[in-house]
């Protein structure tokens, strides 16, 4: 995966930065990075796009209730499928047969009659929610494992490195394939439980196969930081390991962590939509990938139904990726002025 290679490149850059010949300029590296980010047009534009999409996702309940649309089939206020659907299963209002209507800007879904805009907004919410939770958890696991392995060293480090290699060589898609049917068969009689279990299982798969890159990067960083004077001084002063890890080492690892976070959010958004598209992700809650899956079959009759979620995922992942890339460049000491 590209993220691993990107992180490895970053590690080299950071190692170059750690050389003592860098003259102090009086501005902290993080502030420099922020300033560079603000003057980077790609970062500003993609950041704005991300902000709009995040707000739309966050405010999905508000927007849909103001608009009077609903994302679930059984909602009491929503029109019954039989009222809005024709005999062939396609909607009686809006596209593909009738002209555009403000009531349902993206039309209704065939067969279920659910509003497409509402599904899209809630799908955005699901995607971003899953990605953010998975990113937080992978960061915690990755940083924790990396810190301990790098600082303690010895046998612990060898075992951890072996486990990292083991997980790196196992495709996460296979993990999702193995886990999905178990979740479905366990909760097949309980739709609400199934929806929740799918979200939990999906996050679990993403975290299980997503923590290794950061752990490896942090471990490498800690290995070199451990030899620096301030850490050795802390050891000599008899400070607790906990203090050294959290108060001495962690503040020096902010840059790689920020970069890893900003690159893993788009990766997780893409992974969630991809798995749901394949039918091994989420089926119980609105999800962009799931809508794409359903819309492919009716594409020739009803293109808008497919284009809306496809373009949304594309724009979201693209903007997040470009933003993450800009963040990495901003933190990259090689191009620092």
């Amino acid at each position: 995966m590209s993220t691993t290679a990107d992180l490895e490149r970053l590690a080299e850059d950071l190692a170059a930065e750690a050389r003592p010949d860098r003259a102090g300029t009086g501005v902290s590296p993080h502030r420099t990075a922020l300033r560079r980010l603000r003057s980077d047009p790609v970062a500003v534009v993609s950041g704005a796009v991300v902000l709009v999409l995040v707000l739309l996702g966050l405010l999905a309940p508000l927007v849909t209730s103001l608009w009077g649309i609903h994302a679930t089939v059984g909602h009491p206020d929503a029109p019954r499928p039989s009222e809005v659907l024709l005999f062939d299963g396609y909607p009686a209002v809006g596209p593909p047969y009738e002209p555009f209507t403000w009531q349902h800007p993206l039309g209704l879904a065939p067969r279920t009659g659910v509003d497409n805009l509402a599904t899209l907004l809630y799908g955005l919410r699901t995607s971003l929610g899953v990605a953010v939770v998975a990113t937080v958890l992978t960061t915690l696991v990755g940083v924790g494992v990396g810190l301990v392995a790098g600082f303690v060293g010895g046998r612990t480090d060898r075992v951890v490195s072996f486990v990292i290699d083991l997980f790196l060589s196992f495709p996460f898609l296979l993990g999702a394939l193995a886990l999905a049917p178990i979740v479905v068969s366990r909760f097949s009689t309980d739709p609400d439980g199934l929806a929740l279990a799918q979200v939990v299982a999906l996050v679990a798969v993403l975290v299980t196969f997503g923590w290794m890159g950061l752990a490896r990067l942090i471990r490498g960083q800690v290995l070199s930081l451990r030899e620096r004077e301030f850490v050795q001084a802390a050891v000599v002063m008899g400070l607790s390991t906990r203090h050294i890890l959290l108060k001495e080492l962690l503040p020096n690892l902010v840059a790689p962590i920020v970069v890893a976070v900003s690159l893993s959010v788009p990766a997780f958004v893409a992974a969630e939509a991809g798995l749901s598209y394949l039918g091994i992700g989420l089926t119980g809650v609105p999800s962009l990938g799931q809508t794409i899956n359903q819309a492919v079959d009716s594409f020739e009759r009803y293109p808008l139904y497919l284009w809306a979620p496809v373009l949304t995922v594309m724009v979201l992942v693209l903007a997040l990726n470009l933003l993450g890339d800009a963040v990495r460049d901003a933190f990259d000491p090689r191009t620092r002025r």
């Binding site: 060589s169 296979l174 394939l177 193995a178 049917p181 479905v184 068969s185 097949s188 039918g279 091994i280």
Partner: peptide
Amino acid sequence: WALEAVRAPQDFPVLHATVLLGA
């Protein structure tokens, strides 16, 4: 084939074999 095996009714031997093959 693996994706088919995930759909109900599930086909555990097929999934086991495909995951193993991938690994």
